[in-house]
Design a protein around this nucleic acid. Structure first.
Lengths: 135, 135
DNA sequence: AACAGTATGTAATAATATAACATTTGAAAG
DNA sequence: CTTTCAAATGTTATATTATTACATACTGTT
């Protein structure tokens, strides 16, 4: 039920693109999505990019900037995408969204001397994941 | 003197590219650099991208991922680029590197439950700068 | 039915980045 | 000084990522 509520107002193309991203275990690139949805009638880049743009606005996906790739948002309450953090393994390239209250509280309330009020942030951590650290 | 020490081991192309970026008051895009260095004999993208890659490795510039653009590092002690934070105005697009010990201490020591050890991070804050907030 | 806002389809092209290979340079070691 | 090796350069071509522009269709109001 909660799941249906999350998704029932997506348009056809938005739903198709979202499904691809949600089912992937790793970040998906725009042209990889395009390739995978050709069979569903989506043929051209703008169709994909428009869906991506809307999904980001809705907070259903995030863009991992350092990889130009997209992941589904894991936190069900992430209605609007304004605070994102990822951990990225430099060897296996696994990307995980970080859900950590201490981190988000710190960053959401962060202010520096510039007098700028921050509404949004994106943080990407790089390092070695558990598995790759061992090898 | 300190300045010379900072720069004397850059190669010709690296120095040319670095000069462009350092003199700019805003992030510079790779192809904008390319356009500006044609007169200096740099003619092709790989020449620019190779210089950028090296300069990033040296910590002399950073890439602002959300803008695909490059800025000179402001903190003179930033020998190796491993911890970067920027504030980005959503209206005027001004980008400023954030140097804040509380922030960098917090992020450098951050650990989450994933067991991943972070060596590096990039953080981009978005909001309205002082000027744009008023208008 | 008329309207407004959103979404779609399509062709073309812009912008960003890398691959591959030949050549040159510069510093260190013999 | 010359051999050597890593780094840097020059060059052509191409891969990858993203947007512009414009025509059409769908959806939910009034």
């Amino acid at each position: 039920m909660a799941k249906m509520q999350k998704e029932y107002n997506l348009s056809k193309n938005q739903q198709i693109v979202f499904d691809i991203i949600e089912r992937s275990s790793e970040p998906v690139k725009a042209y990889s999505i395009l390739y995978n949805v050709k069979k569903k009638g989506i043929k051209a880049p703008p169709q994909v990019y428009r869906a991506l743009e809307k999904l980001i606005k809705l907070g259903k996906i995030h863009k991992v900037e350092s990889k130009n790739a997209f992941v589904a948002c894991k936190s069900s309450n992430c209605e609007i995408s304004k605070a994102t953090a990822f951990s990225i393994c430099e060897i296996c390239e696994k990307v995980t969204e970080i859900a950590n209250n201490k981190l988000s509280n710190f960053l959401n309330s962060f202010e520096d001397k510039s007098g700028m009020k921050y509404k949004k942030y994106n943080l990407e951590f790089f390092g070695l994941c558990k598995k790759c650290k061992k090898t």
